[in-house]
Design a protein around this nucleic acid. Structure first.
Lengths: 334, 334
DNA sequence: CTGAAAGCGCTTACAG
DNA sequence: CTGAAAGCGCTTACAG
């Protein structure tokens, strides 16, 4: 064990050329006589040479890596987006490096600093609580894409979606089906998107001339378990409702289980709407009506936009939107 | 934009000491007079200095990173394990770097080579089709942990669980509830674990003196959709069954939806068992009886064992086992 | 306890 | 088209 790997210098010696030439062949910089190229390629495969990325990064000043800050790699919500980023980066020469912020602004700032000390050439920040100021500061050194907020700054592009409008549309969908008693399971209120979804819910009720009853608003934290508890809370309040709009799919899953355990059928007794359209939502029984987030496409777009910036091109972030997907968990009130 | 970061040399100048001293303070190597330490620490925070990891890796020969090869970061199955690895590594100074193999042996080998060229100090390989020989070869240079196979080699530790025994237990559970017509939804048969689970299913039937009816074995590919299709296929075969054992939870989810769509209740009409115990399975309606994989714990163990190897300690991989978790999707046949 | 110096494995102006 | 040389930002024997 602990064998040494071969170096560029050994390849050069083996091929009878200078290290500079090997480097140029490796990087496709400048033309090189065919005979030498072949000799070098033979030497490379003979020694099964792999360039040392750390040395390349140090010498060139570019690591060819992109830092990606998520909150929680294991969450189904981020998974889709990471796949998109990987896809968007494939073929560009850049490799993603993932880090977890764990929904903690301090931790996020720390992880970003760590990514930067790893010499990432660009940064993709997926939501989170790190301050705008921190991002703007980092953008002075490397290009940044950030999702889930609106932020204007040089060398930084933000992707933002209108959560309030989508929440309003989701609620409006229930209203249009004749529901008048519509409960809401809110997400953590320190998340801007939870606030927006709650606001959209209220706006839709008001627009329909329906009263907002605080007893029909339960507080969750985006976890499945909190969806279960929210339904208990709602039922305990003894204000009847025929529909629930949950601020994310995971809480909708929890709500669905809680209803099931109490013998309440979806959608016969209670219509249910989620938010996110996680991959699993199609497979819920019944399939869940929800707001589709373009997470995968956003991952692709984030990657491509960042690469454009790295290449000095003007970034052209595509338009993306949230959309209501009607499936079987909602039905007209009879 | 493109500001320069500060370097160790600048810190040294600012603090009025030599670069060597700054380096020693950074690494805790050798003692240093308090007055100098303070001066250096002041300089570091004044310049908000962050060491360049690429340079550190090059100079020291250690990158303090661990390569982690998964098949699919976005899958709920790997997510848990990655969380475990992150947790097991936290506080050790090592950072994980994730790569996706996409269930393609060629791609896996390529990703591993890429991780190694990134100078990772160790490797964790989560299942996959890369050959034993490739792993053994790489283990000559860096320590490796591999899951999902039994492999003996120097500088390499493998974690293996007895899928066949667990599948047998799952099936036996159904038998003990009086089920005699038990269907199986198999996983992709080029996966060793799918084969083992199928074998365990058959073994349990034989042990119970029940016939193996090939019409009750449907072929899936571990995806939810294939679970949906498998149920169609099973139903089309017109051989009655009162229970289904799916080779993974995702296919069980698909099966659950397909049964729902046909008006078949779980567990009243059909009992359902999965395999994996994904986080979501607790929230299925009804909560799914399944085989629990210690994915999170395995992630922790993989990380700790690898760090032990890196520290020159004798690795002591803990014992881990699969276990049946009985929830509400199975019931005694009446 | 501390510094000067060599070296890690590359890239890239600079010459030719 | 190609090579010699300097340099990227660190670490670490080697001296003292």
């Amino acid at each position: 064990m602990n064998e040494k790997t071969s170096t560029l210098e050994q390849v050069a010696r083996e091929a009878g050329v200078s290290p500079s030439t090997v480097s140029r062949i490796l990087n496709g910089t400048a033309g090189v006589k065919d005979s030498k190229r072949e000799a070098v390629e033979r030497a490379i495969s003979k020694l099964s040479y792999q360039p040392n990325k750390a040395a390349q990064a140090l010498a060139s000043g570019r690591s060819m890596t992109i830092g990606v800050l998520t909150q929680n790699i294991a969450s189904p919500f981020y998974g889709e987006c990471l796949e998109g980023i990987e896809k968007g980066l494939s073929g560009t020469g850049y490799t993603p490096i993932f880090a977890n912020g764990h929904w903690d602004a301090k931790e996020e700032a720390h992880r970003i600093a760590l990514l930067i000390s790893r010499q990432v050439d660009g940064l993709i920040v997926l939501t989170g609580g790190v301050t705008d100021a921190t991002l703007v500061e980092h953008a002075r050194r490397i290009p940044i894409i950030v999702t889930g907020r609106q932020l204007q700054a040089p060398n930084l592009v933000s992707f933002w979606l209108d959560d309030a409008a989508a929440a309003r549309e989701a609620t409006q969908h229930l209203v249009s089906q004749g529901h008048q008693q519509i409960a809401h399971i809110a997400g953590p209120l320190d998340h801007p998107d939870s606030q927006a979804r709650l606001a959209g819910y209220k706006a839709a009720l008001q627009a329909a001339g329906l009263a907002i009853d605080e007893r029909l608003i339960a507080q969750g934290d985006y976890s499945e378990m909190s969806g279960v508890l929210a339904v208990s809370q709602l039922l305990a309040a003894r204000v009847s409702f025929s529909a629930i709009f949950a601020a994310n799919d995971q809480m909708a899953y929890g709500a669905r289980l809680a209803l099931y355990q109490r013998g309440l059928r979806v959608p016969e007794d209670v219509s249910l709407v989620g938010f996110d359209d996680l991959p699993h939502s199609t497979y819920l029984a019944p399939p869940l009506t929800t707001i589709r987030q373009p997470t995968f496409d956003m991952g692709i777009a984030a990657a491509q936009t960042l690469v454009d910036m790295l290449l000095g091109k003007a970034p052209e972030p595509p338009e993306m939107a949230l959309e209501l997907v009607v499936r079987d968990s909602t039905r007209r009130l009879r």
